[in-house]
Design a binder for these strands. Sequence first.
DNA 1: TGGTTGGTACGATAAACAACGTACAACGAT
DNA 2: ATCGTTGTACGTTGTTTATCGTACCAACCA
Lengths: 110, 110
Amino acid sequence: MSAEPLPRQVGHPLSDEFRLTEVLHALSDPLRLSIVAALAESGAELSCSAFHLPVTKSTSTHHFRVLREAGIVRQRYEGTARMNSLRREDLDAVFPGLLTSVLASAGQNQ
Amino acid sequence: MSAEPLPRQVGHPLSDEFRLTEVLHALSDPLRLSIVAALAESGAELSCSAFHLPVTKSTSTHHFRVLREAGIVRQRYEGTARMNSLRREDLDAVFPGLLTSVLASAGQNQ
DNA sequence: TGGTTGGTACGATAAACAACGTACAACGAT
DNA sequence: ATCGTTGTACGTTGTTTATCGTACCAACCA
């Protein structure tokens, strides 16, 4: 009589729910910006633990949630790992050129 | 024996002191983004009171200071008014394309 | 010499945020 | 079954932030 196993799914905003100020805020944290830059450079899915962030696991969870809720990353489970990928096409469609210029600036500036 | 009148000048960061995360944070507030959009659209200097912001004077002062310290606006006194202008060339030199894409996105999204 | 205008300084407050620790859940392997 | 791996949930703490009110200041005008 145990309960059903949880599906472990998370909500992602649709493209037309993106809000510019929320995206800018998500990108304005150095740690989150470094996550986005690493995802863009790799071009692939990366697990949370692949980033070797200088914070604890719970803080890491917090930052990935901010990125996901802003629509910047997509997350899905693969075994115990949570794989993250950039929603580049969705972002480019709603905010053309934004991510490109932010990433180019990040490479130079921070 | 009165003291010298204060010069009423404010500090502006040099271009090479711009920090991307600070700029993104400054732009991530709806009120500040609307200020920047209005400045870009007018293409001219505007006094603080020209914006008719739905906040008090002291809150308005706060937001203009955040924008100035990030390097986004330039401020100078003209009589009793403080005139604000966009530092578009400086921003474009350090973060090419960033302001353009943000403003284009702001026009669509907010 | 005042009064008006446009803005700053300072202090207070409430909300949001980044960070942590502990406990726990899902999955895979042993 | 149990254990290690990977990440989440929840509560806490200290900092930052957005907002306001009050007091003030500098410039202009009458």
